[in-house]
Design a protein around this nucleic acid. Structure first.
Length: 294
DNA sequence: TCACGTCAAGCAGAT
DNA sequence: ATCTGCTTGACGTGA
């Protein structure tokens, strides 16, 4: 099991997700921003390996406006060596990487332009992972999308469009259950038609689960991951006590996390901790995991 | 330096 | 109708 956290490190004084307003777009600004983001990405990866955190989610903001029409700069060529260098660090330390496009990426949208833009944005994500020289175990994790008053049709539309993607991109995609539309069971049903691996999100499953327990369903989820896909990925987060349902907790709760590990001890997976205090909770989680030694 | 309105983009559920 | 939250709040103007 590898443990990691998404996108941001609060202990370091660099920011790896710098961006700027579309209004301020210029090639100089883009280069400057990507330069700093890559530098910080490297810092974060080094920070992580020094602390035995070998799973990391790279921010979608790494290259701002990468898939926007305003951007015709060949950032891949310009930063090729930088990407390769970071890729070597990733490879050398056997770090697992994923990315998670934001909410605007909806592959199954009923609007043609949203679909088109989503594919472009997914291509950008794949280009980042390709530039780093990573194999297809580096994943791009997305939700199934909208329901549009007809869930079956919307799931079919997802499957069709997924199968229609280029191999290189499709082989990097994985789908994650969300807390209101598509449960793990729904994702598994899509996986049957498409062979897309499924990422199980523990908190989302707690909120939407059709009465199935996490430990029961995780076996079927693990079967969606092939050899080339790498180890199954699981997302873990906790409900912020007293806050609205689905809100992430500020810090990891030891007793909850211990219980989670015990409930899932029959399975090996890489674990992404979606907890507000990031690397702090990740280090805490690592200690707990080592203590009870799964 | 700080407060705060706004930010490329979608969607569903709550208010 | 409008607001909120989402993998992550950050940018940027005005005082």
């Amino acid at each position: 099991m590898k443990i990691g956290y998404p996108c941001i490190n609060r202990s370091l004084d660099c920011k790896g997700n710098r961006t700027f307003r579309l209004k301020s777009y210029s090639e100089e600004r883009l280069i400057e921003t990507v330069e700093k983001n890559l530098e910080c990405l490297q810092n974060m990866l080094e920070f992580n390996t020094e602390r035995d955190l070998y799973f990391f989610r790279i921010t979608s903001d790494l290259v701002p406006f990468a898939s926007h029409e305003v951007n015709d700069f060949d950032w891949r060529a310009h930063f090729e060596r930088r990407f390769k260098k970071i890729g070597k660090i990733i490879e050398g330390n056997d770090i697992r990487i994923n990315m998670h496009p934001n909410q605007f990426i909806v592959l199954n949208s009923d609007k043609e332009n949203v679909y088109k833009n989503s594919v472009e944005e997914l291509r950008y994500h794949a280009e980042v992972l390709d530039s780093l020289g990573l194999d297809e175990s580096a994943k791009i994790q997305l939700h199934v999308g909208g329901v549009y008053y007809d869930k079956e049709k919307s799931m079919n539309r997802f499957a069709e469009r997924f199968l229609d993607l280029d191999d290189r991109l499709r082989n990097r995609l994985v789908i994650e259950n969300d807390e209101r539309s598509y449960s793990i069971s729904d994702c598994l049903s899509i996986a049957e038609d498409t062979d897309v691996p499924v990422v199980a999100d523990y908190l989302h499953h707690k909120i939407k689960n059709e009465g199935k327990s996490f430990e029961d369903i995780i076996s079927r989820v693990s079967e969606t991951w092939s050899e080339d896909d790498g180890r199954m990925m699981v997302d873990y987060s906790e409900q912020a006590e007293g806050e609205k349902e689905g809100r992430h907790a500020e810090t990891l709760h030891e007793a909850n996390f211990t219980k989670f590990l015990e409930r899932t001890k029959d399975h090996d997976f890489d674990l992404m901790l979606e907890i507000k205090d990031k690397e702090k909770s990740a280090q805490k989680a690592l200690k707990i995991a080592e203590k009870i030694k799964i």
